[in-house]
Design a protein around this nucleic acid. Structure first.
Lengths: 240, 240
DNA sequence: TTACAGAGGGTACTGAGTGCCATAGTCTCT
DNA sequence: AGAGACTATGGCACTCAGTACCCTCTGTAA
C-alpha cells in the first residue's frame, strides 16, 4: 500500500509537477482514501523520499558496529551506503533529482534529510573523538566535509543521467577529504611533529615560480596524525 | 511596518510557541491586515529570520570585492559577517536559537538559509579555483567546512546564553579549517613539495609512543599550497 | 456467537498561502 | 486645483495540506 501510494505520487509529480498535484489526485490514482495517505507519509514531500528512513536506520546500525580504529574511514563508508541506495535505482534517482532541483519545497525537505545523515555521522565521530577540546568541532567539520564530498560525487553522477558507476566519483571525492583529515583519532599522546622554516639557497626544489628563498622542512614520526602535521606546518609557514 | 510585524510575531512566538500562533494573531497584535503580513514575509517562518536576506546580500557584496589572493580567507571573513549579525543582538539571537531548536519547521527553514550562505561561499571558491578538475569539489567541501566550523562556534556562544565574545570561538573554529585547507588557490603551477619516508635511527624526535623507527621528512617551498603539501605527505606516509 | 484489534475510509475542521479587487494616500503633469 | 497614475494596504474568497474524530470492515481469539 505504501508502495502503491509512493508510485502513484511519483508518476503524478512527473506528469503535472509536484505543486500542481494534490493529495486528492494521488489517492484517486492509487484508489485509496485520502486519510490513508497521511497514515503512510507524514507529508506530501515524504512520498518523494520513501526510502531515506530505512537508509538512515541502516547507516546507524552500520556505525554502531564499526571498527573503532578509523572513524573517518567508518563515516566515509557509511556515506557510501547512501550512495548505493541511489545507485540501486538509477532512473528513479535521476528523475527524482530533476524533480527536486525544480521544486523549492523538495529542496528544503532534502536538506533536512541530508542534515540527519550529517548529524548521524557527526555523532559517531564525536563519540570517538571525545567531546573534550576540539573533539566536537572536528567531528562536525569532518562530517560536513564527508557529506559535501559525497553529495558532490553523487550529483555528478545524477547530472550525467545515471550513466556509469557513481562509486568512482564518490570515492575520489571522499579520498580528497581523507587526504586532508587523515585519521586524526590517534592514541592519547601522539608524537608531535616538528617543522621550521630555513634558508633555502643550496636546496634543489623542483618546480617553482614565486619562491622567496625559503623552504619548509618538516620532520614527523611515521603514524603521526595528519592534522597534527598540518597544524605544525601551518604554524611554521606562518601567515603570508 | 515590516519591523512592527516582525516584533509582534516574535513576541507571540515566545509567549505561545510558533505553532500555536496563527498569522491572524500576529496581524491582530500588529494592528494591520492579514494580507499585509504576506506582503512582507513570504511565509510565517520568514518572520523569525527577518535579517538574513540583508545579510546574504552583504556577504555577496563582500565576496565580490574580495581580494583574489586568498579565497579561503575571504570566505572565512564572509562567514564572520553572519556571526556579527548574530552578535549585534545577543538576547534576540539567543531567544531565537532556543525557539528554533524546538520547532522542527524552523529548524528546516534555517537549514535552507544556511544552505544559501554555503552556496554563496562555494560559488566564490569555485570562481577562484576554476571548475576544472577538482575545483568544484574542493570549493564545496571547503565551503561546507567553513559553514560547519562557523556554526559550531556560533552555537557554542548561543548555548552559553550570549555571554562573552562569540568571535573567539568562531575564530578558533575557522582556524582549524584554515589549518587544514590552507590557501589552495596557488598560481597555475605551484612548486611541488617533496616528502619521503626515511629510517630514523639517529634523529631526535620529541615525544612519542608508537613510533616504528621511521619518520617523514618533507621539504617544500614556502608558499606552497597546503593541500599540495598534505597530498604529498599523505602519499609518502601511505596507508597503515 | 461475542469481544476485540487493527487496517482503512469518510467528514469536518484549522490554518497557511494566493488571487483578485477595492480603497486611500501620494506624486506628477497640466 | 484637478485629472491621472502609482503605491501601500485592507478585505474577501478560495485552494489545499494536515489533523481530529468517528465509522466500517475483516480477521482472530475465547
Amino acid at each position: 500500500m505504501r508502495e502503491v501510494l509512493a508510485q502513484a505520487a511519483f508518476q503524478l509529480f512527473l506528469e503535472r509537477g509536484f505543486e500542481r498535484t494534490t493529495v486528492d489526485d494521488i489517492v484517486a490514482r492509487a484508489g485509496v482514501g485520502r486519510r490513508s495517505f497521511f497514515r503512510y507519509f507524514p507529508s506530501k514531500e515524504d512520498a518523494v523520499f520513501p526510502d531515506h528512513e530505512r537508509c538512515l536506520a541502516e547507516m546507524t546500525e552500520f556505525l554502531a558496529a564499526a571498527d573503532d580504529g578509523d572513524p573517518v574511514g567508518a563515516v566515509s563508508d557509511a556515506a557510501r551506503i547512501v550512495l548505493r541506495m541511489y545507485a540501486a535505482n538509477p532512473e528513479f534517482s535521476v528523475q527524482r533529482y530533476r524533480l527536486t532541483r525544480e521544486v523549492p519545497g523538495l529542496r528544503t525537505y532534502e536538506l533536512s534529510v541530508v542534515r540527519r545523515y550529517e548529524q548521524t555521522l557527526a555523532g559517531h565521530l564525536r563519540s570517538r573523538f571525545g567531546a573534550d577540546g576540539d573533539g566536537a568541532l572536528r567531528a562536525e567539520v569532518i562530517a560536513a566535509s564527508v557529506v559535501a564530498a559525497h553529495n558532490n560525487g553523487l550529483r555528478l553522477w545524477l547530472r550525467s543521467g545515471g550513466e556509469g558507476d557513481p562509486e568512482v566519483a564518490v570515492d575520489h571525492a571522499l579520498a580528497l577529504v581523507r587526504e586532508v583529515w587523515g585519521r586524526p583519532t590517534a592514541p592519547a599522546a601522539p608524537a608531535a611533529p616538528e617543522a621550521s622554516v630555513v634558508p633555502a639557497a643550496p636546496l634543489a626544489v623542483s618546480g617553482g615560480s614565486g619562491g622567496d628563498g625559503e623552504v619548509v622542512v618538516m620532520v614527523a614520526r611515521k603514524g603521526t596524525p595528519m592534522w597534527r602535521v598540518v597544524q605544525q606546518i601551518e604554524s611554521a609557514v606562518g601567515e603570508n
